[in-house]
Amino acid sequence: MDVIELTWWQLALASLMVVALAVCAHLARLGVGRDLIIAAIRTVLQLALIGLVLEALFSVGALHWVALMAVAMTLIAGREVMARQKRRFHGGWTFGIGTLSMFLSSFVVTILTLTVIIGPEPWYTPQYAIPLLGMMLGNTMTGIALGLDRLTDAVWRQRAVVEGRLMLGQTWAQAVGDIRREAMRSGMIPIINAMAAAGVVSLPGMMTGQILAGSPPALAVKYQILVMFTITVGTGFGTIAAVLAASRRLFDERERLRVDRLRSV
């Protein structure tokens, strides 16, 4: 099956619809008309740029370039985790904890998937490695950002309760246990919901793309299942690791609660 070529002027037609929406939003005084246009322009520029990068990367296919790309993606995702926090740790700990947990879970799961399950030759073939890692990072990032935000915000609000529990001789882990569990749950729930709704409520974007690009639906479905599983595993472990590390950072070596290590943004 041949894929119908999509040209830039056809995309321009699609953009007219966005402009129409922006005009309506402006007339209705929704106050998002400007943001809408700017976001649309960013989409075009960023995707065009990444398209060029990927073309170059695919044609070279060397391990060190793939690794460089992967590291750059992880750092950007780490920045995004930090940007989504209402309260951050002083001294770059939010970025550090977010990035490190993301790196650990996403890289381990992606590399395992590539080497053990999909098995392209060589295993770091960028056509497989980069999209897989991209999807892992995108979802893990959301989970970690939600989990950390929930943790720090809840500890801040309930600091009197946490200290009250410390006063009764509880360990730091007991004193923050309920909050920590809640934070881990809230980081994992979106991906669990996405698995539960997949194919019934929504057709996942990756599968849709693959089908549009000419793959037989049965194969697209298998890839989608694989991707769903891997991003769930990556998000889950990443969120658990990040919340664990951040909750430890909220206490010092004497197990005192240190909300002064947080600052609101």
Binding site: G164, L166, M167, L168, G169, T171, W172, E255
Partner: peptide, 16 residues
């Protein structure tokens, strides 16, 4: 820290 606080127990004015 938690051992110490289990021995030397503070009861605050506002209980949690």
């Amino acid at each position: 820290g938690h051992c110490w606080r289990g021995w030397v127990m503070l009861v605050p004015a506002e209980s949690q």
